[in-house]
Amino acid sequence: MSRQVKIEIWVGLLVLMTLIAVAFIALKVSNFSAIQDRPSYQIHALFSHVGGLTQRAPVKVSGVVIGRVASIEIDPISYRAKVTMDIYNDYADLPQDSSASILTAGLLGSQYVGIEVGGEEDVLKPGDRINYTQSALVLENLIGQLMVKLTDGGDK
């Protein structure tokens, strides 16, 4: 085997290893497969507090991901947080009286939007708004309420 052929084989091996590494990182480590833009439609909801919700956070029904958070901004009229969500077209029949709440995965996990499916016949169309929402739990508020309750109990 000439030297040139040897060099070519080794470089080929290097390229092959790189390809395997990139494929491993793309498929197994990162969310590359989730990024391919699946056909989706947008709905939005107003929350009085979004907590630590971020863009691209999952939207789940019964724990199954049905979409992603597209954007979070302030609604100029009500000054509440307007969360716009991309819902995949496969899940096009969410009832209109569904409710959205901001939940936390695990104790220290990341936050996501959980949708509780309602029972109405009419379904949410692109651009519609979910009217029933529950905001993220804010620990300080919770402790505040707890303190009020505890002190009330002490008075009695």
Partner: peptide, 15 residues
Amino acid sequence: FWAHMNDQVDWHEDV
């Protein structure tokens, strides 16, 4: 191990 990683690592942002 894999699911958490898959969830948090972003192709564009990180890789």
